[in-house]
Design a protein around this nucleic acid. Structure first.
Lengths: 202, 202
DNA sequence: CCGCCGTTTGGACGAATGTCAAGATTTTCT
DNA sequence: AGAAAATCTTGACATTCGTCCAAACGGCGG
């Protein structure tokens, strides 16, 4: 038998997922509680039964987004045996993620930008950023090892550079620039060797 | 004597500048026409005398922001005579821009993100992005020349990487991370050599 | 002084927003 | 089955939003 609190949490998740779809469609600035409710089979009043206010709802959404995110990027490093194969696999993986769910990534950048204005989002956004940074660093480290070299940058530096490529690719992809994804893949592949240097003492 | 249209344009500029301050304070999502009017000595109704609607006002603001932006970054490349001096000068310049007006740069990222949702902003944002990309490319090219090398990446790639560093630095700076600016300067200095390789044929 | 015209005000409008509470409905427990 | 607790709907509230407009202001030529 299901526990009460579990059911409550389940419904919260369900509502948050619907909210994420609405947010991905419209962006933070244009998404109201009523539009969120229209993405569910419930009425708008229910949202205040499960969430204290809008900020708590959005915050919960961000956390939920994070779970999906880290889960998605969990595997992926393992299967390459040469540096360039790893770089290519990473490039393909990131490009696929971008192509598969561009609106979700757009939402991510929207929320991250909002966190620069709304203190309330900052902690959760920072946590997600950390997760992404670790994901990138795993790839860079693995690349360096396969190449018999060492990373010559910090994890946050590496993440910032990858993220710059990703964000630009998203922007161009949404503007229907056809080369956006190919350029991105190439950019990622070429970025790896820039971030390592031959190990000083082998 | 002043032309009529000049006076009209002047007031538009004045209102747009006030709007930019309001936008920098609150962000796109939270800035209403009435809050903008509060940043001026006029009443809210006036805004519709000088701008057809909110979108036209914001668009005009973005354009105005761009003018200030490109004007700011116009000079700066000239004065270095070694590669590392140029990299350091560029790093200091970018870091100073970030430190001087973090809220304006925050606004820029906000508007650029909005342009992923609002078609209306896309063209102007893209134009600004181009200007910034050219600014970065001038630096990379100059660095390569001083180093007797050649850039091994495209202009847009270079811009994406620098922009990634900048955006992360801004985020950390606004979260009052003390090392944000120093890390950024170092990141920029180290980025230059990553983007060039020895010229194949001297 | 009048009347013109560009400018500015302040209030009004309907629509949309976040929030709330009272009641209807469904589920759960005894 | 019936009571109690939960879930959900509905309508209302005070605000705020973008937009519009009638009226007032102000300088200037007649």
């Amino acid at each position: 038998m299901r526990r009460r609190v579990d059911k409550f949490e389940d419904r919260r998740r369900e509502l948050a997922d619907a909210a994420l779809l609405a947010l991905a469609d419209l962006g933070y600035a244009r998404t109201s509680l009523r539009t969120i409710a229209e993405h569910t089979k419930f009425s708008h009043g229910l949202l205040h039964y499960y969430f204290a206010d809008k900020v708590e709802l959005i915050t919960y959404c961000v956390r939920r987004y994070k779970e999906a995110c880290v889960q998605r990027y969990e595997g992926g490093v393992g299967a390459a045996d040469t540096p360039s194969a790893l770089a290519a696999a990473c490039a393909d993986g990131l490009a696929a993620a971008l192509e598969e769910a561009p609106l979700m990534h757009r939402l991510w950048y929207d929320l991250r930008t909002q966190s620069m204005f709304e203190e309330a989002f900052r902690a959760d956004v920072a946590e997600i950023d950390e997760g992404l940074q670790e994901m990138i660093w795993r790839n860079v480290s693995a690349y360096a090892e396969l190449a018999g070299a060492e990373p010559n940058c910090s994890p946050s530096e590496a993440y910032a550079l990858f993220d710059g490529l990703f964000q630009q690719a998203l922007l161009r992809h949404l503007s229907e620039t056809p080369e956006a994804l190919d350029d991105f893949r190439r950019g990622v592949r070429e970025l790896f060797p820039r971030l390592v240097s031959r190990a000083s003492a082998g």
